[in-house]
Design a protein around this nucleic acid. Structure first.
Lengths: 141, 141
DNA sequence: CTGCATGCAAAATATTTGCAACAGC
DNA sequence: GCTGTTGCAAATATTTTGCATGCAG
């Protein structure tokens, strides 16, 4: 299904369906969330010749097309994930660096409060919360 | 007061109080939140000779000492702010790039929910929420 | 004096861009 | 065949590191 919609969206803009674009989109789907570097590594497992430059350009394009988005997680690393997946909020542990996902419903109250008080519309899929995961909170501190 | 506590904290660790360290800490206080580059620019207004390298090293040191922290806002740019300031949540507009601040109290419900359901302790001062500010939400879209 | 701190330059990373060769349609 | 795409290399931007000089204590 991702291939079909990719071809469709590209066609609609007069753009071309290439092996690289399919591979990058597939890699994003498979990885869940990953940095450009990780996407490149994943793509390279299947097609070794693909350049990191192309990965950057393709991710930018796919984001423009609305097929993927990126969030800024822990260390300034842009992390891409497919939009077709369920939206989720990232919980980044500052101790172990792990990333957990929770349902956006936990933000419902917050989103409503910010919208009424400040007129700010939160992009739920782009939110990252920093803190300590259960394991690290118990272990250390 | 910042100078006094800086000298104190440095002394406690056998480190030295230098003009650069005072300048960097002052710049962070004055700027509210800023990238290393912006801190360097601010410091340069007062003392032109200060190297960007020193700013990086000093910010890292000040963070270790607990005098400043950094959050990752919009574009992977680490943003530093003094810890003595009131903690605040950053609202980053993905359209205009503006950064607004709101009271952490809006997160109270969320923090409680995550702690009980997942055992995750949110670091309130480090949170950045992406979305559209009131101006951009009204203007565009 | 003694050793930590700084400045400078160069290295390591991450990301973007110019251009010629290539491939989708 | 026409034009969008890719790969390569070089340019940029950002952050880190090595080393000799300088200054706080």
């Amino acid at each position: 299904m991702s291939d079909a919609s990719l071809a469709e969206v590209l066609r609609a803009k007069g753009l071309r369906l290439t092996a690289q674009r399919q591979l990058v989109l597939d890699a994003v789907h498979q990885l869940g969330h990953a940095t450009p570097d990780q996407v490149h590594a994943k793509v390279s497992q299947v097609a070794a010749g693909v350049n990191i430059t192309t990965v950057y350009r393709t991710l930018e394009l796919l984001e423009e097309l609305g097929l993927v988005t990126h969030a800024h997680l822990s260390h300034g690393a842009p992390t891409y994930h497919a939009v077709s997946e369920d939206q989720h909020v990232h919980l980044v542990c500052k101790a172990c660096g792990g990333v957990a996902e929770v349902s956006p419903s936990v933000l419902d109250g917050l989103v409503g409060a910010l919208e009424s008080s400040r007129g700010f519309l939160v992009d739920v899929g782009h939110v990252a919360l920093f803190g300590l995961c259960a394991a690290c909170a118990g272990a250390t501190q």
